[in-house]
């Protein structure tokens, strides 16, 4: 019994340290990226200052896909091992992914307002895709809150997998619909980026990725602590 308790405690400390390290990395990278994007990177000739939101908009969009992939893999691992730690990873990742997706829509909407004068442009595939993505993953939480115990974890894992399959399907269906109606005009703009822009874009990307990992670690530490606490109180109750 004492060995398992120390084991548990030490693991929690390790988790906390990782969270701290990633938190620092994320803070530094986000600061560097913000300074670089708003003060150092060259101003776009056509769009002016508003173009700078693109760095974050696209970086967040790309990272959110990574996040949902993480949630999907964690779901697969949960179904294989039935270890609740993988459910923690999956649900936390989806929660952060939802936050990122909403940010994609908000930044995209601001960009649309500045470029085309309206907050919402159905012709922009990224905006539309992320709207569908938000709807897909919002349903995850509805599902989760309406089942209990084992089933909650199992169903969540299955939905994390099915949801991740729906993402590329939504993305592609929005794309082909657009390309048939009129050729895609608004590409990500990544292909013809000058080098100085590309560097700041990559740094923003790294910053967002670090931010995700930091948020994930912090939340996981919280969840593990909470579970350990509950187990402890249960043991105290029964003794």
């Amino acid at each position: 019994m004492p060995s398992s308790t120390t084991d548990h405690a030490s693991r929690r400390v390790i988790g906390a340290r990782a969270a701290l390290i990633w938190g620092v990395i994320a803070a530094v990278l986000v600061t560097v990226a913000s300074v670089g994007v708003f003060l150092v990177a060259p101003e776009d000739a056509d769009q002016g200052v508003i173009q700078r939101i693109f760095y974050f908009h696209v970086a967040i969009a790309l990272v959110s896909l990574v996040i949902f992939a993480v949630a999907c893999v964690a779901g697969i691992l949960y179904l294989r091992t039935r270890n609740v730690r993988w459910d923690d990873v999956s649900v936390t990742a989806i929660r952060i992914g939802m936050l990122f997706s909403v940010l994609v829509i908000i930044t995209g909407s601001i960009w649309a307002k500045a470029s085309w004068g309206t907050w919402w442009v159905w012709a922009d595939p990224r905006l539309v895709t992320y709207l569908i993505v938000v709807l897909i993953y919002a349903a995850y939480f509805v599902l989760r809150s309406s089942v209990d115990d084992d089933r909650r974890l199992r169903y969540s894992a299955i939905y994390a997998i099915a949801g991740f399959v729906s993402v590329p399907l939504s993305f592609y269906s929005v794309r082909i619909a657009q390309s048939f109606v009129h050729p895609v005009v608004f590409t990500s703009g990544g292909a013809n980026m000058p080098g100085s822009m590309l560097i700041w874009f990559l740094i923003s990307l790294a910053a967002m990725l670090a931010l995700f990992i930091a948020l994930l670690e912090v939340e996981l530490v919280g969840r593990r602590t909470e579970r350990a606490l509950r187990a402890l109180s249960l043991r105290l109750e029964s003794s």
Partner: peptide, 17 residues
Amino acid sequence: LILPVLFLPALVPVVIA
């Protein structure tokens, strides 16, 4: 209520296509 919430977002691509 749950079924439409789960199912309809996944149906969007089918409706589009």
